[in-house]
Structure formats: structure tokens, C-alpha cells
């Protein structure tokens, strides 16, 4: 069995890792992590331009690496801010795909659902493919799907915490309720967290901090990419049911009478 391509809006990816570039020490670190993991899609923020001097800009570097670029609306607290940021991203990158983030405050960085759903609905009406970063509430995931987003991106834990998938049951339930792509976003700490997300039925995983701030980002990028593939296969392989008592794997047939 091979990993099937995944469609996210107008993007198609063959590798199920989406690399968040936030937190990387340098552009080189990002390039090494892209190469090591095989990711085909990276996220970026939209910020004021600074003269780059003689160095290569992030834009030029990513274009040179032939990866697809997914802009986000990081740092937006209101639907209004997120909508104009998405429009600016569309203008800068000539893409209709946007990772929509509307957060409630700087301390938790948790999504603000009321503003989020308003922004999602408006952006969909403006022709965007919206990949919506959200809490792990299965019902709200279904609400997002109903307003026309292209993917639901539940958090495993708050951004940057590395706490893993705190509520696997919610992710599994969301998988049952949401029929569009489900991408675990935020909270990944290490490879096993990504494998779990995929085993729960997620279609892809977005990892930023866990890779960019690891001691060896490229090695962690590779590890998480492998874990995602492992989790993808495990989900489809059909795991054995959990049991209370042991079940011998070796038959008693032919056992000696000693």
C-alpha cells in the first residue's frame, strides 16, 4: 500500500507532512528540513517587508525549492484582520488557498471560534480554499465543514507546547463527523504524536515548532515524516481490538505432554 495523494483546496500533496516554517533559526534550516522530510507544502506568515540586503529572501528560497507555499493568517484576532490578511496573501502568492487562524489571545494562542467561523464563511464566499485551524471540538469541525471550508485543522494541544494529542477521542470523533480532509495542527512534540494523529484518522499533520526548534531540525523532520507514513498505513491496516485478558499468539496444537 502506498500513500495516496491528498487534495487540499487546489493543492495536491504526496507527502502528508505540512511543514510550518515558524521558529527556524535560518533559511538553511528550513531547506534542510524540507529535503530531509520530503514535504511538498510549507506554511508562511504575512508580515511587513524588510530590505533583505544581499541575502536571499524566504520567498525566493521556497520558490527555488519548488515547494508549494501555504500562507496563514497567524496573529489575527478578528475576522476582519484575517480576511484582509488572506487577501494580501492571495495577492502576494497568487494562491486562493489559505490556512485560516484567528486566535483569542497571545497567552493561549487558542482559536477564537466565533470570529473564525465568520472569517471562514466570508473567505469561502470570496473564492478562497480555507484550511481552518480550530479547537478539537468535533461539532465545531462539522460546523466549519458546513460553511464550505476545504479542510479542518484541529489542534492536538496549544501551539508550541509540544504536548501531543491531548484528546485523542475528540480527534477520532471529529474524523467520524468530518468528511473533508482533517489535518492535525499544533501540539506535536515528537514523531509518536504524529503517528498517533494519523492512526486516529487524520489525513495529514502540520508540524512547526517540533521540527524547527528541535536540536536537529532536519533529523526530526525526517522522523516525523516517517511517523506520519507509519500512522497512515497503520490506520488503514486495521488494528486488533484491545482485550482485557491475554490471547496466545502461539497455538496449543502439538504441544508436548511434559
Amino acid at each position: 500500500m502506498q500513500v495516496e495523494p491528498l487534495k487540499l483546496g487546489s493543492y495536491v500533496i504526496n507527502n502528508r507532512l505540512i511543514l510550518g516554517t515558524g521558529g527556524a533559526m535560518s533559511h538553511e534550516t528550513i531547506a534542510e528540513s524540507i529535503a530531509a522530510s520530503g514535504t511538498e507544502l510549507v506554511t508562511v506568515a504575512i508580515r511587513r517587508i524588510k530590505p533583505t540586503g544581499s541575502g536571499q529572501s524566504l520567498y525566493d528560497m521556497l520558490r527555488g525549492l519548488k515547494v508549494q507555499i501555504l500562507p496563514n493568517t497567524a496573529g489575527c484576532f478578528t475576522a476582519k484582520e484575517a480576511i484582509i490578511t488572506a487577501e494580501l496573501a492571495r495577492e502576494a502568492l497568487e494562491t486562493n488557498v489559505v490556512k485560516l487562524e484567528v486566535i483569542a489571545d497571545d497567552k493561549t494562542l487558542l482559536p477564537q471560534p466565533l470570529e473564525l467561523i465568520d472569517a471562514a464563511e466570508e473567505l469561502v464566499s470570496r473564492g478562497f480554499f480555507v484550511l481552518a485551524y480550530t479547537n478539537d471540538d468535533p461539532i465545531f469541525g462539522r460546523n466549519l465543514q458546513s460553511v464550505g471550508v476545504s479542510a479542518v485543522m484541529p489542534l492536538g494541544a496549544p501551539i508550541g507546547t509540544g504536548l501531543g494529542v491531548r484528546n485523542p477521542h475528540n480527534i477520532a470523533l471529529m474524523r467520524e463527523l468530518v468528511t473533508i480532509p482533517l489535518v492535525l495542527d499544533a501540539g506535536i512534540g515528537t514523531a509518536s504524536d504524529a503517528a498517533l494523529a494519523m492512526e486516529l484518522g487524520c489525513d495529514a499533520v502540520l508540524a512547526a515548532t517540533s521540527i524547527t526548534r528541535a536540536d536537529s531540525p532536519a533529523v526530526m523532520a525526517r522522523a516525523i515524516s516517517l511517523a506520519i507514513e507509519a500512522g497512515y498505513l497503520a490506520h488503514r491496516a486495521g488494528r486488533v481490538p484491545k482485550r482485557h485478558l491475554a490471547l496466545a499468539s502461539t497455538s496449543d496444537e502439538g504441544r508436548a505432554d511434559l
Binding site: 515558524g22 506554511t43 506568515a45 494580501l88
Partner: peptide
Amino acid sequence: RRMWPETILTEGHKVEILTIAQGG
């Protein structure tokens, strides 16, 4: 973009020029 050449800046205009930056 196509409107940049004909957009004339006048006193007090607030211009934001943005690009991509590292971000999750």
C-alpha cells in the same frame, strides 16, 4: 498589483507593503 501604477499616493496615506515570513 495591476492597480499599482495608477494608484497615486497622497498626503497621509498609510501604505503597508507585505511579504511572506516564517510562520506556522
